[in-house]
Computed example of a mutant assay.
Amino acid sequence: MGSDWPVTDPNPFWAIYRAVTRLGPRQDPHAVGDEVLTDILEAQHAHDFDVAPDAYTAGSAYANHAEDEVGALTVGHRADLVVLDCPLTDLETVSPARPVLTLVDGEAMHGDL
């Protein structure tokens, strides 16, 4: 999961929202025009909410041939993870989510331990 289309924002939470709804999130400044917020684009390509975060993490690791190193909270994998300011419990919590701590290989890169 991801995009190489340069008009999309790299925010992964907005990408998950887009993958599920096929709409632009209101917070995304690139979601220009009312139709982006209301007209579903290619609905047949929508993911279920339960699948989208896994596609973004484990799916991306697999696509990069790195599934034995990253993409899941598994013993032996690198501790590359993000702690959020809220749980991703439903679609309404995804788009406004913000990272409060980012770890790369177990080392804090953003935020405090």
Rank of each mutant, 00 (worst) to 15 (best):
H110C: 05
A55V: 09
A43D: 06
G59M: 08
F49N: 08
V36L: 09
D112C: 07
Y56R: 00
P87E: 15
I16G: 00
A19L: 12
A72R: 11
Q27V: 05
A46G: 03
P6E: 06
A72V: 00
V83F: 13
N11V: 08
L37C: 01
T8C: 04
H77C: 04
V51Q: 12
A46P: 02
L73N: 01
T8F: 12
V94K: 02
L103W: 10
P96R: 05
H77K: 07
E35R: 07
E67L: 13
D80V: 14
P6A: 10
L88G: 06
G76L: 09
G33Q: 03
Y56C: 00
T8S: 10
A72Y: 00
L81T: 02
A63G: 15
Y62Q: 13
A31Y: 01
L113D: 12
D34S: 13
T38P: 02
Q44I: 02
W5M: 08
N11Y: 11
C86W: 00
Y17I: 01
D68H: 13
M109R: 15
H45K: 12
A63W: 04
V75E: 15
F49Q: 08
D80N: 14
Y56I: 01
G33M: 07
T57S: 15
A66G: 02
A63K: 06
T74Q: 11
P25M: 06
W5D: 11
D54G: 08
V36F: 11
P96V: 14
D34R: 09
L113Y: 03
D90W: 08
E92I: 07
A52D: 02
D50I: 07
P29L: 04
